[in-house]
Simulated scan of single mutants.
Amino acid sequence: MAATTESSDAGAGSKRRHLGIPEAVFVEDVEAFMKLPGNDTADAVLRKLDEQYQKYKFMELNLAQKKLRLRSQIPQIKQTLEILRHMQKKKETTDPMETRFLLADNLYCKALVPPTDKVCLWLGANVMLEYDIDEAQALLEKNLATATRNLDSLEEDLDFLRDQFTTTEVNMARVYNWDVKRRNKDNPLKSSEKS
């Protein structure tokens, strides 16, 4: 009983670790698998496996979109951090910082920015908030660490998902081949006519 509990706990931990992606179980013995309740015909089992495969495809699409968003977000955060570090250095001087502001697509304006210890950051959803440079830097460093960690986690989830694709494809092939062999065995006239 303890072994069953441990394996189910390990499975639950695995599912949580991979964003709720269900694990595809490899069908070791197709004959025994087809005798399980609910596995009435090979066509029904193949439909279930194909449905599971399509769900994995949908999950892959969502994860790929998240990955693209994170990959574009990380350089933006790094660039903003670099600007903040530059402003940190200029904060102690009296010289204004020359910069260019984006007014519209491909339209920039030159500006002289006096030394300051305040910055405004876009938080998203048309929200901008004013921070001290140190607070903004701490927030952005935290956001960068989180985004990097999330990207690594997404990479692991995508790798896990690819394994589930492979397992499901192999299961589908094994069930299909089992069905072909069963039909040939049940109908020996067709197999003898072919030879």
Rank of each mutant, 00 (worst) to 15 (best):
K118H: 10
K118E: 05
V119P: 01
V119W: 01
V119T: 09
V119E: 03
C120Q: 14
L121F: 03
L121K: 05
W122K: 12
W122A: 14
W122Q: 15
L123M: 07
G124N: 05
G124H: 00
A125T: 10
A125L: 11
A125R: 13
A125I: 12
A125G: 11
A125Q: 13
A125M: 13
A125S: 12
A125H: 13
V127G: 07
M128N: 04
M128T: 13
L129D: 04
E130T: 00
E130V: 06
E130H: 01
Y131A: 01
Y131S: 04
Y131L: 07
Y131M: 02
D132A: 11
I133H: 04
I133F: 00
I133R: 02
I133P: 02
I133Y: 02
D134C: 06
D134R: 07
D134G: 02
D134I: 06
D134E: 09
E135A: 12
E135T: 09
E135D: 10
E135W: 07
A136K: 03
A136N: 03
A136Y: 00
A136W: 01
Q137W: 03
A138H: 04
L139A: 14
L139W: 02
L140P: 01
L140Y: 02
L140C: 05
K142F: 03
K142Q: 07
K142D: 12
N143K: 05
N143S: 07
L144H: 04
L144N: 02
L144S: 02
A145H: 00
A145Y: 05
A145D: 10
A145N: 07
A145W: 06
A145G: 12
T146I: 14
T146G: 00
T146M: 08
T146V: 13
T146A: 09
T146N: 00
T146E: 08
T146Y: 09
A147K: 01
A147I: 05
A147M: 07
A147R: 06
A147W: 02
T148L: 14
T148Q: 09
N150P: 09
N150R: 06
L151N: 06
L151V: 06
D152W: 08
D152A: 15
D152G: 10
S153L: 15
S153R: 12
S153V: 11
S153K: 12
S153C: 07
L154I: 13
L154C: 07
L154V: 13
E155N: 13
E156S: 13
E156I: 10
E156H: 14
E156R: 11
D157P: 04
D157A: 08
D157E: 07
L158E: 03
L158S: 04
L158T: 03
L158A: 03
D159W: 11
D159Q: 10
D159P: 10
D159N: 14
D159E: 15
D159F: 11
F160D: 01
F160I: 15
F160S: 09
L161I: 06
L161N: 05
R162E: 14
R162M: 15
D163E: 14
D163W: 11
D163F: 12
F165Q: 07
F165I: 07
F165T: 10
